[in-house]
Computed example of a mutant assay.
Amino acid sequence: MSTAKPLSVFDAAQTARLLDFADMVDALAKAAADYAAGGIHAPERQVVPFPQGGVMLSMPATAQDIGIHKLVNVVPGNKALGLPTINGVVSVYNSRTGQALAVLDGPTVTARRTAAVSMLGIRTFLARAPRCVALMGSGTQSAGHAQALAALYPGLRTVIIGSSLANAQAFVKAHRSLDLMLAAADSVPADADVVITLTTSAVPVYAQPAQAGRLLIGVGAFKPELAEIAPDTLHHSQVYVDDPAGARHEAGDLIQANLDWSRVGSLATALSQGAPLEKPIVFKTVGCAAWDLAAARCALQKKEYLQLVN
């Protein structure tokens, strides 16, 4: 009779060590194909309100090898208490037996796989390696993206545009140890070939005309009432989304622009058929549990995980 191994629980730092950005970009490309083909099942996320204004988000996904359940709580009021806004876990299960394999830190998985999806977007929708990336936002998501850029494009010129120049300068100071040419600015440089919006703004923070050769990645607007990218920019760009089903309900930029969904492509299609790189491209991401499953696959394959559980 076999004895079940003790459940491995990884904190934020341990989870980060298990999630290598290069590995995740490759795993996400595979997961996108699997998800589009029905090999990964990831239903729409369930949102349950807390009495004091927070929400609990439940996001399961299953595949032939593993299943995951991400359960995270988002409580905006925590900021005033000096506590993290997002808390939660990603539990990982054996698909054949249903037995629990590991518990990963939820916010770390979310931040790193979200940044890795953007990095996959750069690899897919930009004709060459980026020369200058502008990050619009100076919060947690920007930190994750800066870490990903440093890992995959060391030495890259990276410009931070915050809600104020002071916030951008503070971000640069806090992350000066990263292998990037970090600089603060109050507007997007003319030579930026990638712009990534990472805010929770209800009004567009990027309204420049659509521009061939500049990839625009929208990350921060994850609810219908949020919008980071101006409608005119979207209407004059070829638009792709990471999750077509989720985007129809959550991509506030696209929803508010009344975009014709028949002309919105999917990441999976771009990966399999290519994209018109000579045109202005917007890649909008809303995230889904399939991407968390891809991250969990990476964690299970890392030698550090195998050493800890064997």
Rank of each mutant, 00 (worst) to 15 (best):
I229T: 02
P43Q: 02
L198P: 12
N73C: 14
V90A: 03
R248F: 04
R17F: 06
P60F: 02
G54R: 07
Q141S: 02
A251M: 11
V55D: 14
I196Y: 06
A185H: 14
A221Y: 07
D260H: 03
A299G: 06
A36I: 09
V9R: 01
T158G: 09
S164H: 06
T110F: 05
V133W: 01
G287H: 08
G98F: 08
V90L: 14
M136T: 06
A29W: 11
P84N: 02
Y93M: 13
D292K: 03
S8H: 05
K303I: 13
G139R: 12
A170M: 04
R17D: 15
V48K: 10
E225R: 11
C298Y: 00
Y35G: 02
L216A: 01
V75C: 13
L152A: 08
P6R: 00
R17L: 15
H249I: 11
G38E: 10
L165S: 04
S164Q: 07
L156G: 00
I86N: 04
A184S: 02
Y206L: 12
I161S: 03
G162C: 07
M136R: 08
K79P: 07
V195R: 04
L300E: 00
V172F: 05
T97I: 02
K173C: 13
P6H: 07
A230N: 06
A22N: 10
L18T: 02
R263V: 13
T199C: 01
Q99Y: 06
I66H: 07
L306F: 05
K302F: 05
V75F: 14
A296R: 03
L120N: 01
V103Q: 00
G252T: 07
D20K: 06
K173L: 13
R113W: 09
